[in-house]
Design a binder for these strands. Structure first.
Length: 233
DNA sequence: CCCTGATTCGC
DNA sequence: GCGAATCAGG
């Protein structure tokens, strides 16, 4: 596979949306997780919390190179740094043995300023769906319920592809639930005919769903499965 | 073991 | 530019 503009765009959206490289690779298809990571870095979109790079060492201190470069001559002689010239903040925080109780006369008010009160409450992205939308797991709903919209509610306009078609919400036990098209696609809908009484499908689709077992040798090729058979990627 | 992202390096 | 191999932490 090649990195078309659409695939790059999807990769970028999902990467920035917080999807893992594996999810992105799986969603794009035809590429490996490594390919996704490599491409993301080449696009300049790294900078994401990596499990392997928790700390923040300012410089890469020789991460045990197993494969040293063949040519690396004349290392510039480092000027000997002053041994005692770093970490002023550490000195301020670490010592001071008497260390008075932290809540003294400093801030009489602000009672709940400490004790870890501020939860960022950032929505945890679980995965990214086919359209690049962000999925959340159960219980991951954002805490603040969306404030009551001060607007008049207007019926959503169905997309033109499914206008007049039988959607999931239109299903009841009197109309045929035979799926037409692929779930997730804009024109996915259901048959919608009146059902064969006692069955979930109309007469025609009952004939597809329930096949009499024919004697060996008298079988016909099986009719196409619902959803049009396995998805080809 | 599994997962993750980062990096390297031959192509 | 690409991505498999590899590294390294959780």
């Amino acid at each position: 596979m090649s990195w078309t503009d659409e695939r790059i765009e999807k990769l970028t959206k999902m990467w920035e949306g917080g999807a893992t490289a594996s999810q992105i690779a799986d969603e794009l298809g035809g590429v490996s997780r490594n390919a996704v990571i490599g491409k993301a870095h080449r696009l300049g979109l790294k900078a994401r919390p990596s499990p392997v790079k928790a700390n923040d060492k300012p410089a890469r201190p020789a991460p045990a190179p197993k494969k040293p470069k063949p040519v690396e001559a004349a290392p510039a002689p480092e000027p000997a740094p002053a041994p005692r010239a770093e970490a002023p903040a550490a000195r301020a925080a670490a010592p001071a043995p008497q260390a008075p109780a932290p809540r003294a006369p400093a801030q009489p008010v602000a009672p709940a300023a400490d004790a870890a009160p501020a939860a960022p409450a950032q929505p945890r992205i679980v995965s990214v769906g086919p359209g690049g939308f962000l999925r959340q797991g159960p219980g991951d709903q954002q805490q603040p319920i969306p404030p009551a919209p001060p607007r008049r509610l207007v019926p959503a306009k169905p997309s033109p592809e499914i206008a007049g078609k039988t959607s999931l919400l239109d299903l009841n036990d009197r109309i045929c639930r035979w799926p037409m098209g692929h779930p997730g696609e804009p024109d996915f809908h259901f048959c919608g005919e009146k059902v064969n009484p006692g069955f979930p499908y109309c007469v025609e689709h009952c004939g597809r769903a329930y096949q009499a077992q024919l004697p060996r040798g008298a079988r016909r090729a099986p009719p196409p499965l619902p959803f049009g058979g396995p998805r080809v990627r």
